[in-house]
Nucleic acid binder design. Structure first.
Lengths: 233, 233
DNA sequence: CGGTAGGTTCTTGCATGCAAGAGAAGCTAC
DNA sequence: GTAGCTTCTCTTGCATGCAAGAACCTACCG
């Protein structure tokens, strides 16, 4: 997505490594449990161990890797329990976003959401699951950004990175009937926001997140009995 | 609070620096805006710059310090807007905690909360504001821990560190009548939890957080017209 | 053939040296 | 006296070297 020759302003090396490794983990190019040697990453990004260490430290705080002292650094995947906990948080944060957005009144982002839902309708009509998954991601993103609360946005992004959410969602959307139901829920949320019904929007959103969670966990469950999420596609 | 000679298991140096600097910032021993030289901290903790850098990096992610490349590292204090945003998040997270705790049914932590409220009652009767402030902190802590959601707990702690919350609360409790009202709200929340009324508990808690927030911001407002929170005591 | 002890190699944790840049202080010219 | 420029110092960013420890592999013994 980005030109590798792009010059990052201040701390170039560390930021470059951070972005690279993070996206590699989220997109599944590094499998859960896989060891990430500082030395190997340093060679890969053509920098010394120092910026690699700092990038890995940040990823550790974000919950994406686990550093065991004098043993190694490993790609971390949340346990089943953590996934449930993260979904519970996600429900609250997105509900909050819907409520805050409703309270803001008419703002341009509402038009973007409306446009998103129109395109989502076309994707559902054509049965284009992949395109719809992208649009779903966009819908939630617009909602959170539109809430205009940078702290919420920050915590939310950390959460979503841990969940590797888009991969989970893609799986859940393959379930028959889920597409249409999902779209109807989205439309309901937007309607309540436009009516400035903050609490209505919050709870509609929370219900939607719970439904989506159930579909996601159900889609994931039969395949893997134990802990492994983020299976290979 | 801790013996400085205590040996930390794995990465001793960094953990020691991290804990020391973080508590120093939260407790106000480092004023907002104050520069934190890596070299000076290294000398103070008798380590090299490396573990200091890693500790500061973590504090940067937590929002407690700001690192400007090739300029310096400074103690960060949230802007007024950020404080409002953080309170909005706090409201959701604590409401969530109350709901989750109610759903757990009778667990030992409920007895601890009951004990906390009894002692709070005595503190209010005696007008011991300082003791009550500690008990308030304990109440909220018990609630969040009792919710048994480690992700919630983690995000909540980050939040509270950024707010330097206990200092703000102490200020708000000096307002006449706030002590009694606060205690009554706490009792109401516990009652609803004991009745397993999850949503009732959630909203009682959210109301309580909003009241507390209003009292806090009101107590802080007249003193500082602009941005500075965390005034010296 | 199995188990144990030793060594070897890999890992991260920490210390240190160098370089680039920002900012302040002082000097010079007007 | 003041504005502008130069220089100097202090900061963090990055590279590298060393050390401690963990895990694995191997050889040896029962």
């Amino acid at each position: 997505m980005q030109e590798p020759t792009e010059v990052v302003g201040r701390n170039g090396a560390q930021a470059r490594v951070l972005a690279g490794v993070r996206s590699a983990i989220i997109e599944g190019r590094h499998a859960p449990g896989e060891p990430l040697s500082e030395l190997a990453l340093a060679a890969e990004y053509d920098v010394s161990r120092t910026p690699v260490r700092e990038a890995l430290k940040q990823l550790q705080i974000e919950g994406l890797v686990e550093v065991r002292a004098r043993v190694g650094t490993f790609v971390r995947s949340p346990s089943r329990r953590e996934v449930v906990e993260l979904f519970e948080l996600k429900e609250m944060l997105e509900g909050m976003a819907a409520r805050l957005l409703a309270a803001r009144g008419p703002v341009p982002v509402l038009d973007e959401i409306e446009d998103n839902l129109e395109r989502s309708g076309r994707a559902v009509a054509q049965g284009d699951t992949e395109d719809y998954a992208r649009l779903v991601h966009g819908f939630h993103e617009l909602l959170v950004v539109g809430a205009d609360n940078s702290q919420l946005e920050s915590h939310y992004r950390t959460l979503m990175n841990q969940l590797a959410y888009h991969r989970l969602v893609s799986a859940s959307l393959t379930r028959p009937g889920r597409l249409g139901a999902s779209l109807a829920e989205h439309r309901n949320v937007l309607e309540l926001i436009q009516e400035k019904d903050g609490f209505g929007a919050e709870f509609a959103m929370r219900d939607h997140v719970r439904s989506s969670e159930r579909a996601t966990l159900a889609a994931d469950d039969p395949l893997a009995g134990g802990t492994p999420l983020r299976k290979e596609v």
